[in-house]
Write a protein that binds this DNA or RNA. Structure first.
Lengths: 219, 219
DNA sequence: GTCTATAACCGGATAGAC
DNA sequence: GTCTATCCGGTTATAGAC
């Protein structure tokens, strides 16, 4: 087996194990067993367990492709579109809670170590970038425009989804999550207004951004 | 040394070690060293490391006394009072980031184990109860009344502080945190209006609740 | 390259001297 | 009760046979 292939399989297995048992449970034995290979094969691909963890965090960050899915082809007010997007995010979380737990644990692990801290910072930069795309897409599709810089609102959206995630992971209360979603959507929508008429060129430009934002899937 | 005294010291030391090195770094050796006692003394107070961790989580939950400090004796609009309270929370977080990191890690650890999961749920119930007190105090002092059930808004406040906390812990960006605080305060204040005139009795009752809410300190 | 076997180490828990 | 010394299981990492 090629070294790159082995590395990829080990990283994938490591994420699975971490999602199920946490970082503490992600021993080299557990990871290689999950990957169906001998323990000794591990050090043929990685020099140490720490090296695998750092690589895993970096890969996990890049694999995150959307913060929330803005529904396509809807004709609804901005607030409803945001509610729909946040509900889609929650559905992804409910479908695989362990995944988000693992991301959370990996982020906190990375932040503690000065050598990997930058990876966590990069992860959040990426979250905000993806959130920004979603907000731009939502505004464009509903003919709205944001009253605050989209960068700033993107950070608020990330904070809102983090709060939603932590709360749901603890008590798994769907009704409370729904209330949080409505509150988040209302709060964000309050920072937008109906857009003035735009030129055709600007609308088509924005639509291509929106399509790109839709590309990723969560979960 | 009395067993209860030893237990208390070990719990305290364990929290210190977890804050500095994480749960993974909180070995019985590290904990007893931090407490300045011999390794063997550990099992005189606790039957196992797991028992200490469960006890620690339970104690940590109860020691949380406020989600945000609503400033006393101010005469300002509700939104400004909320901003001040959230800033006080952020200052506590900045003064001791490791403390909140430890709480986060303990919660996630508790949630994974069916035997301790209830502790995490209870922790969030307590957060919401404290948030509710803060919101009631803030409304009372500014002559406002909430448009949604305070229980529901308390859950939103907890979600907002969770989002604020996670974001700040990763990049320690004070400017972004300030923007999140303003957004949070504005979003919550939008769910209140000026209260109608109240009777003297109802005001004095509410003031005693407010004083109770102020009792706790964070950090 | 891949596996078995093992070295080297670490952590929780305990025996036993005092 | 308290400490030193030790056991024992589990983990990372590697040596060496094939």
């Amino acid at each position: 087996m090629a070294v790159q292939e082995r590395r990829a399989r080990l990283i994938r297995s490591a994420f699975t194990v971490i999602a199920e048992r946490g970082i503490a449970g992600a021993t080299t034995r557990a990871i290689t067993a999950e990957a169906g290979m001998a323990l000794a094969s591990f050090h043929y691909a990685f020099s140490s367990r720490d090296e695998l963890l750092s690589t895993l965090i970096a890969e996990a960050v890049e694999s995150e492709t959307s913060v929330l899915d803005v529904p396509t082809g809807v004709d609804a007010p901005l607030e409803d579109v945001l509610v729909a997007g946040l509900r889609a995010y929650l559905e992804g979380l409910k479908a695989d809670p362990h995944r988000e737990r693992a991301m959370l644990e990996l982020t906190q692990h990375a932040v503690r170590d000065p050598d990997t801290r930058a990876l966590a910072v990069r992860q959040y930069e990426r979250y905000r970038m993806l959130a920004r795309r979603s907000l731009e897409a939502a505004a464009e599709r509903t003919g709205s425009e944001w009253l605050d810089p989209v960068d700033v609102l993107a950070a608020q959206l990330v904070a809102l989804t983090d709060g939603l995630t932590l709360g749901w992971l603890v008590d798994e209360d769907d009704a409370r999550a729904e209330a949080t979603i409505r509150f988040a959507a209302r709060s964000l929508a309050a920072r937008a207004r109906r857009a003035e008429a735009r030129s055709v060129q600007s609308r088509s430009t924005a639509r291509s951004v929106a399509d790109e934002g839709r590309r990723g899937e969560r979960g």
